[in-house]
Design a protein around this nucleic acid. Structure first.
Lengths: 110, 110
DNA sequence: TTTAAATATCGTAATATTGCGATATGGGAA
DNA sequence: TTCCCATATCGCAATATTACGATATTTAAA
C-alpha cells in the first residue's frame, strides 16, 4: 500500500512521527545541523555542502518547512532560513520526558 | 528514484537518520511509547493496542529491532521485547547537544 | 525593461514503504 | 506426536519517496 495509517493513533504521536520522519533522512538531518551551526541563518551555499542537486536540496528544505522544523523566507538573493527552535525544543522535551519514564534496569528476560 | 543517497554524508548523520526514520511512523512511535510504559517488557497484547494487523505489527517490530531501538527475543509464548536504552539515550544526547549549539535569539531576517 | 542570480516547481523514472491476508515457524501442552 | 497458540515471513498491490534535469519564478541590478 505505502499509505501510512493514521486512524487509531493520538494526534500527538502522529505529529511527532511526522517530524521525526522529516528528520529521518541524511540530507535533511545534515541540513538541520548546518542551520544549527550557521549563526546567521544564511544557507546560500548549502547546496555546495551537500552531495545533491539544487532542486533536490530545495525539495528537502520544503519538507522541513512543511513540518515546521525550519522557518524563514527567501527575498531576492537574501536567503533566510533558520531553525524553528520551538519545534526543535519540542523534540528534545519528547525524548527527555520519555527517558524519565523508562524503568531503570528493566529486565528483558522471562 | 526512491533511493536515498548516502555518499557524502558522515556515518554519524547517516546512522542517526536511520534511527529517526524508524521512529518516523505513528505505529512505531506508539510501539516505543508502549514499551517505555510497560515495566515488564511484555508486549503480547501489543496488537490489541494498535489499529494494525498482527503481521504489520510484527514487521514494524522487525524494523525497530533492525536499527537497534529495541532488543529482546521471543521464546515460545514468552514475549520479551524492550527498549534499548543505550540507543534511546543516544538520541536524547543528540538533540540535547544540538540544542546547545543553537545561537539564542538568532535573527532570521536579512 | 532586460539581464543575471538564485531558489522553487514540474515531470519523470526507479525504488522504497506500507498494509493485509495467507502461510510458515516455533514452543508448550495435552 | 499432535494440537494449539503466538509471532515471523512471504507475496502482493497500492502508494510514497527520492533524485535529477529542465523549466518556471522571483528579485535585484544594469
Amino acid at each position: 500500500m505505502g499509505i501510512t495509517k493514521v486512524d487509531g493513533f493520538t494526534p500527538e504521536v502522529t505529529q511527532m512521527a511526522e517530524i521525526l520522519k522529516a528528520l529521518g533522512h541524511p540530507a535533511r538531518l545534515a541540513i538541520m545541523e548546518y542551520l544549527i551551526n550557521s549563526p546567521d541563518c544564511i544557507n546560500g551555499d548549502l547546496v555546495d555542502h551537500l552531495p545533491l542537486a539544487q532542486s533536490t536540496v530545495s525539495r528537502h528544505l520544503s519538507e522541513l518547512k512543511k513540518v515546521g522544523l525550519i522557518k524563514g523566507t527567501i527575498t531576492g538573493n537574501c536567503i533566510s532560513y533558520c531553525i524553528n527552535e520551538e519545534v526543535w525544543n519540542k523534540i528534545k522535551v519528547f525524548f527527555n520526558s520519555s527517558s524519565d519514564q523508562i524503568t531503570p534496569g528493566k529486565s528483558c528476560a522471562c
